[in-house]
Amino acid sequence: MSVVIEVAGLYKSYEDVVAVDDVSFEVHEGEIFGMVGPNGAGKTTTIECIEGLRQRDSGKVNLFGVDPDVSRAEIAERIGIQLQESALPARIRVQEAMSLFGSFYTSRADSGELLDRLGLTEKRSAAFSKLSGGQKQRLFIALALVNQPEVVFFDELTTGLDPQARRAMWDLVCQIRDEGHTVFLTTHFMEEAERLCDRVLILDHGKIVALDTPEALISSLEMEKRIVLTLPGAPQELPLSDLPQVNRIERSGDRVVVYGHGERFAGPVITALERAEIDFLDVRTEQPNLDDVFLALTGREMRE
């Protein structure tokens, strides 16, 4: 897989804050690469140094083998950008914004189809200032795709979107990837990174905490899995303690939490209960997720 973005020893500080401190990574062609981290972690600074919108203090950044600080014009043609914060003139209409921004590029997507995919067709004649927050966000995503970019950058992809629109956006991003584009996104939502990204970079205080596939990050923790069950009127002794996958059992009234490990952990527990003819309701398995990874690696919750 060829490398489209190469970052080595990236360093950037503002007056008294070090925003990005010695960050190195590569993004491969055709992958969805996600950068997660709490507020102020340095995500926007990193992504905008790659886009050529901010100048780094030191380190190396290459996009398509070109330094964005040297030839931004060449790069701008081949990438799409959704900024975390930006705006359009208040009275420009959705359709007008699409054709105006399209006119800045040589390669152009079908703007009608883009608006359709982003659920903005009904709003095509609406002024920018009359759009809701989520609609503005979707318009900016459409604008980022207007030139059929080889690499598209989304800074805070789904901020301001409701859960339904968020899920639709995940589908869209997967489609974009499947069409052969590379996606670089930042997010606050660990769930989003886990569901969407091929690889995730966890950033904290301007430094890389971890970088791998979500599965590898989670399994590297070797954390316990949990099964939560409701067992009405079950005997005091459960036939589970002897199972090799089970570590321990917590019980409060009818509610039982079984802690264990292993790839297939739920199966043997259920089978054992069925064999002992114990009725169970509401089976729920809880997997460790990226939030747990962040907690384990930094000792802090993502949101504090």
Partner: peptide, 17 residues
């Protein structure tokens, strides 16, 4: 006003000179 709101930022993110 355009600068304050981020309109100029959005334009700058394109290849437009």
């Amino acid at each position: 006003g355009y600068r304050e709101l981020g309109v100029l930022r959005r334009f700058r993110a394109t290849p437009m000179r």
